[in-house]
Structure formats: structure tokens, C-alpha cells
Amino acid sequence: MKTTLKNNMILKDIFLTRGLKTIFSSLNIEFLCPGLNIIKGENGSGKTSLLMMISTLLQEDRGTIIRFGKLKKNDWLNEHILIKQNSSLSDELTIEENLKIWCGLKGWDLNTDKIEKSLKNFGILKYKNFLVSECSSGIKKKAELSKLNFDESFKLKCWLLDEPLNHLDQNGKLFLKKIMDKFINMNGTILQTSHEKKINHKNFKIIKL
């Protein structure tokens, strides 16, 4: 697929420091858009920081980030999802409530059917009324990844996934691969950090930090 400037994600000459530690100095990356970008690197190499910086949660000290042309910050916030390594679900709410409220906060449809469908696809429908504090790490991870399986999520430009395969069982991994392929086929871009050696996707780019 031919990439245009509006369909590009480029980091130019990025400098990032956190405290006294320099994480990136003069980092230049051109991501595969649309496509899967797998970010690899040792622990502490800055994989999560890179995702957070692209997501605007960290501010680069110097350099330019081109997010799909010159997308305005507010538009960019509505055009991507960041799934962090740790679950961002509220312990006091059930899995279904967490997802419903998350959809509501995005301004999306609050329909519970789509939430049930998404949970069913990940095989955790029976846990929908469990409080998050009562769930295992694997179920929390699947609930978190269920956010990607809504119709609205496939209409976004980009998914930022920070080690999404952690805590997932084989079925979870297979279903995640399926929805990632579906998103890429719909012109989506995925930036995924991973330590996995084997990559089961066809069209991808590996970025080493």
C-alpha cells in the first residue's frame, strides 16, 4: 500500500530525558503505516517511554513527532488507544462497568451488547460481573485488550500496545493476533512493544532501541 504524508508517523531527532537519565538522544524512526511495528529492546531501553511519548503522556525535550501528517493534539487523542502494561481498570468496578464507562468517556456508544460480545471473544464473558480486584492478571489483561475489539476501535488510526502478550494464554494470543490483523487490514497502524522472538504476523517492521 502506498504511504502518503498524511498516513505517516515519523520521529525526527528526538531527545528525551527522565530525571537525570537520557533515554533517547537523536532518535529517528519512520514507522510502517499502515502496518505492525514491533518495538524491541532490552529492559530500560525506553520502549514504554517511546509509546508514552507518542501518546503525548511524555513530552520530548527536543525533536519532532509527526503523527499522521500534522494531526492536532486533541484529534490525535481521539484517534489512538494506548494499552499499557499494567491494567488501567478500577478495582471497585466490575469488568463490564469498567468497559462501559471507558466507552462512555471516549464518547462512544454505551451499548452493553458490544461489551459482552467483546468479552465473549476473549473468553471472559463469565467474569463480566466480577470486581476487577477479584480477577487474575490474565483476566485483567484480556479485559483491557477487549477495548480493542469494539467497532469504534477499528475506526481509529493507531493502537499503541505495551507488551500486550504478557499474562495472556494461547487463546488470548490467537484472538489478539486476529484483531490486530483485522485492524491492519482496515488501514490501521499498530506500535507494539514485545520481547517475543517468534512473530506470527505477515507484514511488520521491527524497530530496535
Binding site: S90, L93, I101, C103, G104, L105, K106, G107, L131, E152
Partner: peptide
Amino acid sequence: MKINFKNILIALVEKEFKSYLRSI
């Protein structure tokens, strides 16, 4: 994408209410 601001308000109030109710 169409954004429903009413849903945002409902979600916010629902989340806060349920959180307070469960941390009585």
C-alpha cells in the same frame, strides 16, 4: 468519528457514584 458528549457525562457520573458506593 461521532462523539456523544452525553455519554461522557453519564459515564463520569456513573463511575464516581459506583466508586463511592463501593467504598462506603
